[in-house]
Design a protein around this nucleic acid. Structure first.
Length: 215
DNA sequence: ACCCAGGTGGCCC
DNA sequence: GGGCCACATGGG
């Protein structure tokens, strides 16, 4: 049993997710920061507020008053710290690169370190930005992914990089697989893998024994 | 009235 | 390396 089997099961069940839902690279970056520990529907409201004000723009976000950004992204929660961090991140990118295309031309490992050095970007956010905004082949591990793998008996409490390695070792090196697999984990967790275990309702229930120790 | 959401940084040991 | 806390809105 390999991860690709789980991928195919989820893909068959939920279909193609078409992630990341955004029109531009910057919109992916903004969304990745806003969605930290936040429901996506609240992020959507914030993104729409920013779009109405034509604020999905590196220079504008870099120069706008923190208060104004905070006001616009209020629905996403943690708006004070997210506004501060978002502004700084945009300022950094704006001052150091001619555009985002130039930024994403650098090697994946270099970019990951560079992103992680910015306050407000941790491993999941960095990898989401790299994969979905930069088309770099790197797997995104989130709380849902960890939870699903634990419930399936595949992992227990491994750290981020360790879990990421497992995907990198096993998955075919295809952007579409990386992008869709993460999206499918999210989709599945929202429906069947809540914090309070309700595994009885999960269609993967019968697969658990199957996966256990076989990945 | 809780609990949870596509995390992160700071502080502690 | 981990464990705990603040950060904050909106939906179930």
């Amino acid at each position: 049993m390999r991860f690709i089997t789980l991928y195919n099961i989820l893909l068959k069940k939920y279909g193609k997710q078409g992630w990341w839902p955004a029109e531009t690279r910057l919109e992916v970056i903004v969304g990745a920061i806003l969605t930290q520990n936040t429901a996506w529907r609240n992020v959507e409201k914030s993104i729409n507020n920013l779009k109405k004000e034509k604020m999905i723009d590196l220079k504008k976000l870099a120069e706008a008053p923190e208060k104004r950004i905070a006001f616009l992204i209020k629905p996403a929660g943690f708006f004070n710290q997210k506004a501060k961090r978002l502004k700084k991140i945009c300022k950094y990118l704006e001052e150091n690169y001619v555009d985002l295309n130039a930024f994403f031309k650098k090697p994946t490992k270099t970019l990951r370190k560079e992103l992680l050095a910015l306050k407000g970007i941790g491993p999941e956010t960095a990898d989401s930005i790299l994969l979905y905004a930069g088309n770099h082949l790197i797997f995104v591990v989130d709380a849902y992914t960890k939870r699903i793998l634990e419930r399936l008996g595949i992992t227990e409490q491994e750290n981020y990089e360790k879990i990421q390695e497992m995907f990198h070792e096993q998955l075919p090196r295809r952007l579409e697989v990386f992008k869709e697999f993460h999206a499918l984990f999210v989709e599945h967790a929202k429906k069947y893998c809540k914090k309070k275990p309700l595994c009885s309702k999960c269609f993967l229930n019968k697969e658990c024994e199957y996966f256990k120790g076989n990945i």
